[in-house]
Structures are given as structure tokens and as C-alpha cells.
Design a protein around this nucleic acid. Structure first.
Lengths: 213, 213
DNA sequence: TCGTGTGAAAATATTCACAGCC
DNA sequence: GGCTGTGAATATTTTCACACGA
């Protein structure tokens, strides 16, 4: 399985759709569907069938002409494309409500994301143990990130502190940041940032609802 | 302020960026910035300055040539574009961990989203009161949605139950659904659906990190 | 025959560049 | 002089349509 064949730039939309295909394929697998094809996969994801084929073509050839795709094989192929087929170690900064919820979120370990460090700058929280994880002062990221082989940072601080948290994570050497804060951050170009803010989806809803027949 | 002038189709990406501009403008407002221009706004959002102007142009003219944009005015204008400048009433189905966290999330009321009904199908939860809201059986959506003027549904059930929850919401008359489940749903074309799944962002991260120099 | 993989065509989105207005 | 608003140019993404292989 060759997942690096076409090294030309891959649209971000393609990456998002691959994640969606994964979800649908997992659902199919759970329902003992062994073979599928671009059409049902596409319609489950509300896209065009050739879109599915084109998205996959960026990475290689995973189907069988005249037959379709073996669910299990395609699932593994997509996991490999997204590099979701290995363990990723993460640090979480900001142990408030949301932070705690994420620390307890079973979907993370199920998908190979291990949150192995919890950090905060509140002296009352430092030292506390939550879900088996001791909370450290954010200043100790410097020391813990390399030691624990942490590559991802998850920020769940209040928005005022997000930039400082990001700076500390980057200084400590993480390669990617997942920002749950509503504020934007500035990072050097060798670090990736993704924003999680479901109000974007809410506004897409309110807009769509309001501008319909 | 005319926010419906150009009725041609508006790209989804534009809607998403408008939500981002809102966040940045709110940040500026909090920092007492009164006037800005497309350049600083664009660079804070990692887009091109003419992208900002083009996005706004879909809805009208909100700037002053030679000057820029008045933060407060632009903010209100964008809110109006997204229909985020009024109250929206929502029902939540699935009072598990995530559901509870959302019911307690202060950002909802702050942004005019009022969750006025909580529903579940677990008999042990029905009747319980959480954050001042009684939990009702999902079957009562039919009756509660019209009575309480609910337009949005928020689904936080386990994925196996998401389709049924969606069917009940739609049957009861909601116009838009925010699906926090990892499963896809099928809805009639007069209902809008948005998916919230931060693993999409995580996979964007793992992909980006892994396919860099 | 059926469904993939893929060039070519069409549709969309982004960026440029500058006229127009403060 | 400076920055918006916008048509025109460019770039990107999606869709079509069909050759090819199982």
C-alpha cells in the first residue's frame, strides 16, 4: 500500500472528506459490510462519487475495477493516508471544565491519541490528580514534552491565555496544536494549528436556515 | 445596512471565514480597537486581504474608503449576515457527559443560543432536573418543540441513536440540527445539518505534521 | 457487465490590480 | 495618501465521461 505516491499538494477539503469516509467505513464494518463502492460511500457523505475516487487517487489505488472497495482494506488505507494508524502522544493545557471532559473522553484512546500530560498555571490545581494524571505547572512543559515524546498540544485554557500556552508548547517542541479556544494564535510556520469552535457550525446553521425558501 | 443584496450563492468557506472575522473583531473590540482594515483582519485570520473584502462584498458595503472598517459596526454587520444577531431556541437530545457539559456551557447564552429543552430516552434520566432544566422523554419533542418555539436541535446521543433522534427532531419541526455524534444522518432537504467532530481537525493535524519537510 | 482510475471540461474560489471615494 | 469595492485574471476544485481491468 503506497500512500505517498502523489506528492503534489492535497486539498484540505480532501483531508476532511477522508476523515468522513473513515467514519462511514467504520460504520459499515460494524454492520458487517465487506465490500462497498464509490457510489454508496459518496451518498452517505453527501458528495459526488467521482469526488470519492479522486480523493483516494491522491494517495494511490485502493479499489478493484468492476468490484469496488473492500471496506476493511480501504479503512486501513485511509488511516495510513491520514497517519491515524499510529499512536500520537499529547499534552493538554488548561484543566477547566472542557479540559477535564477531554481527559475523560474515551474516543481519544480508542483512536490512538494518548493524552499523557495535563498542565495548568493555577497553583490550586497543580499537584491535583485527575483521571490518573497529575497536573503540572505549565512551565514544566519544557521538561516533560521531550521526555514523554509528546508531539501534540491541546489547549483548553481561557482565551486570554491561549497565546502563552501555545508559546510554551512550541518552545517545548510540539509539532501541532489543537486550539479549543475561541481566540486565534500566531505560530511559526513549522507548527500546525487547528481550531475547534463549534460556533462556526452553529453560524453555518443559522445562516442556512435563514436564507432558504 | 443591507445584508441580503447579493442573493447569488455564497460559498460555505465564506460563511466559515465570517465566523472567524467575528471572533477577531470581538477580540479587537475588547482591546478597544475602534478602527481596523482588511489587512490586519486578514493576517489575524491567515487569509488574503482581498479575500476579506470579497467575503464582505457578498453582503454589502461595510467599510469606508481610505479609512477601513469601524470594528463595532462591522461586527454587528457580520452578526446580521450570519443571523447571529437574534435569539435562537434549541433542544438538546442525549443528556450524557457531553450533553451535560453543553447544557452548562456559558458561551451558548452569551451568543444568543438558548437551550430550552433537554431530552433523553433513558427512563432513569427522565424527570431529573439538570442546570434548572427538566429532562423529558424524547417522545415529547413533538409537543414541546412547537410550544417552545424551538428551531434548532443539538444531538449528543450515542451514535447508534442519532438517526432516531434526528427523525424525532425533524418530525417535531426543527429547521436545523447540530450533530455531535460521529455518525452521519439522513435528513430531508429542507432541514440543515452540521457535524461537529474534532477528530477531523486532529486528522488534519496528524496529516500536516507528517507530510512536512 | 460493472465500477475504478483518470484526463479533459466545467464550475468555483482566490488573488490581482486599479478605479473611486474618503 | 490610503483603503475599499470590484471586474478581470488566475488558480483550484469538482464533475464529467470514458478507457481499462476484474
Amino acid at each position: 500500500m503506497n500512500t505517498t505516491s502523489k506528492n503534489n499538494h492535497i486539498p484540505r477539503a480532501t483531508i476532511q472528506r477522508l476523515a468522513t469516509y473513515m467514519q462511514v467505513l467504520e460504520f459499515m464494518k460494524k454492520n458487517n459490510v465487506e465490500v462497498t463502492s464509490s457510489e454508496p460511500l459518496a451518498s452517505a457523505c453527501d458528495v459526488n462519487a467521482s469526488q470519492v475516487r479522486k480523493d483516494l487517487a491522491y494517495f494511490g489505488e485502493f479499489g478493484v475495477r468492476g468490484v469496488g472497495y473492500y471496506v476493511d482494506y480501504l479503512l486501513e488505507a485511509i488511516r495510513a493516508c491520514l497517519h491515524a494508524n499510529r499512536e500520537w502522544r499529547a499534552a493538554l493545557i488548561g484543566v477547566g471544565n472542557l479540559g477535564r471532559a477531554l481527559l475523560n473522553h474515551q474516543e481519544f484512546p480508542r483512536r490512538g491519541i494518548r493524552i499523557v500530560g495535563a498542565f495548568d498555571c493555577d497553583p490550586f490545581k497543580i499537584g491535583e490528580t485527575i483521571y490518573g494524571l497529575e497536573i503540572f505547572c505549565s512551565k514544566r512543559l519544557q521538561e516533560k514534552v521531550p521526555k514523554q515524546n509528546i508531539e501534540l498540544g491541546i489547549i483548553t485554557t481561557p482565551p486570554e491565555r491561549v497565546q502563552r500556552a501555545a508559546d510554551q508548547l512550541i518552545e517545548a517542541g510540539v509539532k501541532g496544536i489543537l486550539n479549543f479556544t475561541s481566540a486565534r494564535i500566531v505560530v511559526p510556520s513549522n507548527v500546525s494549528v487547528e481550531y475547534v469552535d463549534f460556533f462556526h457550525q452553529i453560524y453555518a446553521l443559522t445562516f442556512n436556515i435563514s436564507t432558504r425558501p
